[in-house]
Design a protein around this nucleic acid. Structure first.
Lengths: 151, 151
DNA sequence: TCTAATCTCTTCTTTAAGGAAGAGAAATCT
DNA sequence: AGATTTCTCTTCCTTAAAGAAGAGATTAGA
């Protein structure tokens, strides 16, 4: 925590933490035969809620053809469902399905471990952690928007 | 934070946070034309340090052919470097290069935002956060190993 | 020493995902 | 009402990444 070269340097700790999170996400997805784009879309839906194929495809950086097929894959695998839009019959709404699927199953062990870790903290400490989770999520969400705007 | 259906439910907050992290990682990689597997390998190297192509490929779930080409791509893009193994002249060691490349550049805005957030906490609160980062990284690392063992 | 095993890399083939163009249905606008 | 725009989806083509098989170099073992 002192010298820049130190193995416990704060920046390094944080980078390693992020790498671990990414790695676990990827590994879980791979274990479920979920491609990178599919996972990306799934995360988008989790984070921003149901949206139309058009929006989802645009966010994922896809043209309409691949978007349709990506949603097909997610739907067949049971992650999402297409529902007709109530106000515009051309539109479709893609919404994540709450019911447990393969991905949740695969992620369960890690979630339990994290749960164990979190239960080791006092309520005050948990407040700090969840405050951070909330703020960081918003920061990352914003950063993704900025990235989209740039490119 | 009270009812299970609540929008601020702890589990939901955490899932949304993870989604945001994954999403940002993916978006950053995409902005640098880094494929999913390449990003995966890069995270592996960041987390576990230098390793041989054989190990890296196995960890990434690739056969030897694609492994070589993946390392070629990472090397050309300046993320890693191949160095000969000192004790076995058949082997090569792939190590991440510390110098800033496109990916770091793209991730800078988010890092600064996160830095700002972190600077808002007291030293005691930061201890809690970094304690969590360290433990969680280890938990995720372990979970990835378990996933590999299972499949 | 000489054979077998190990490690990386090359080449060829296959597959999965994405782009382009356009069709069909429904909404919007004049 | 008729024309135009907006959505989603389909089809065909292209491309990027992965598998398979094997070569070349080096180490380990009989």
């Amino acid at each position: 925590m002192s010298t820049p070269e130190s193995r416990t340097d704060a920046g390094a700790v944080y980078r390693r933490y992020l790498s671990a999170v990414m790695l676990h996400g990827h590994a879980s997805a791979k274990a479920c035969d979920l491609g990178a784009t599919d996972l990306y879309a799934l995360n988008l839906l989790e984070l921003e809620g149901p949206m139309t194929p058009g929006v989802l495809g645009a966010r994922a950086g896809l043209t309409t053809g691949p978007t349709t097929r990506m949603i097909d894959r997610l739907e067949e695998a049971g992650y999402v469902r297409r529902v007709p839009s109530p106000d515009d019959r051309r539109k479709v709404i893609v919404e994540p399905i709450g019911k447990p699927v393969r991905l949740d199953e695969v992620m369960t062990p890690a979630r339990e471990e994290i749960g164990k870790i979190l239960r080791g903290y006092s309520p005050e400490q948990l407040d700090v952690l969840f405050d951070y989770f909330t703020r960081a999520a918003e920061a990352y969400r914003q950063a993704v928007d900025d990235l989209r705007a740039t490119s």
